[in-house]
Design a protein around this nucleic acid. Structure first.
Length: 312
DNA sequence: CCCCAGTCCTGCGGGC
DNA sequence: TGCCCGCAGGACTGGG
């Protein structure tokens, strides 16, 4: 309830809507970049708190950080959403979409450290935005928390949505890309395949952590130019992408020791226990038992791989 | 068009 | 012990 007090709420306990997590919140805040599985977990976590509920109010939290990037400005945003009923909460790549009956939708990019929470933020000073919802006499809130403040929040009309999420900005979702699209899209760039997998216009939803894991499961060296991949190897990337992203979603994403991702009830994901290469440099490869996991830098980002399992 | 380096941001950890 | 600096990376921008 300290959260409700902080936010100046006169709302009843959050437990009216969702049980508050029984996890202690005192553990050091970890942050991992929300990629597709983490964003999907957030969406599932807050869906019931939004869908069918009406927006009574929204507010910018009084944190001492710069405000999150917002479109339109806050007064206009309020005019557009107050009184609206939420029709759906979905995911598009690494973005969260909160669709309103008017046709407008909130688009939230958690980026590095953003979280959607029903309760218990890792710390209260980085709360950024609050949705106050009603359904009948029930009232509750959902928060956007973001320690680094790189996350963004927009309320867009249908035309703006189409432009913001259209094919020029965002490629096909990694879980929906067809075999033919995988081939066509990877073949048309000479960049190293690891770098290509991070290009959201090529395929949307894969980030730095899962790119390394996908290539390891595919048995492909991260420095291979994407254009030189055979059809067979691209099929392996396709299959590994589906397996890893679905599996990571089942485990509610990855929470790293120095990282920060939590799900909507502020619990850790557990897929980090399944990582085969990410941040395991210097350790033996658990797949082949012989190789040592290497760390290299590509496009200013760390890549992890096993030189024995992953061929050029 | 394609690609890369720089930018934003905060907390942590290594080095001195 | 404490300070400083580098690092972490998603998405965007500007320049080659």
């Amino acid at each position: 309830m300290r959260l409700a007090v902080l936010a100046g709420l006169d709302a009843p306990p959050l437990t009216v809507v969702q049980p508050i997590s029984d996890h202690p919140t005192t553990s050091p805040v970890s942050i991992s970049m929300p990629e597709l599985p983490e964003v999907e977990t957030m969406v599932r976590g807050v869906r019931a708190a939004f869908e069918g509920h009406r927006l009574a109010d929204v507010s910018l939290c009084d944190c001492h950080c710069r405000p999150i990037l917002m479109q339109p400005d806050f007064p206009r945003l309020r005019e557009l959403c107050i009184g609206q009923k939420v029709s759906s909460v979905t995911r598009r790549a690494k973005r969260i979409l909160i669709q309103l009956e008017s046709g407008a939708a909130f688009v939230i990019e958690p980026r590095m450290t953003g979280l959607m929470l029903l309760s218990d933020p890792p710390d209260e000073s980085h709360l950024r935005f609050e949705w106050k919802l009603t359904q009948g006499r029930k009232r509750h809130s959902v928060w956007f928390w973001d320690r680094r403040g790189l996350g963004t929040l927009r309320l867009l009309d249908p035309d703006q949505l189409a432009a913001h999420l259209g094919p020029e900005k965002l490629g096909p979702d990694a879980l929906e890309m067809t075999a033919d699209e995988w081939v066509a899209r990877l073949r048309r760039t000479d960049r190293p395949v690891k770098v290509a997998l991070l290009d959201q216009k090529l395929v949307a939803g894969i980030g730095n952590l899962y790119a390394s894991e996908i290539l390891h499961r595919s048995g492909i060296h991260p420095e291979v130019p994407a254009s030189r991949l055979t059809g067979k190897r691209i099929a392996k990337i396709h299959a590994a992408t589906l397996e890893i992203l679905h599996e990571a979603t089942r485990y509610e994403g990855s929470t790293l020791g120095d990282g920060t991702y939590r799900n909507a009830l502020n619990k850790d994901g557990s897929y980090q226990n399944k990582h085969r290469v990410y941040a395991r440099h210097g350790q033996p490869c658990v797949t082949c038992g012989n190789g040592e996991i290497q760390r290299i830098v590509q496009a200013q980002r760390s890549t992890f791989f096993c030189a024995r399992c992953q061929k050029r």
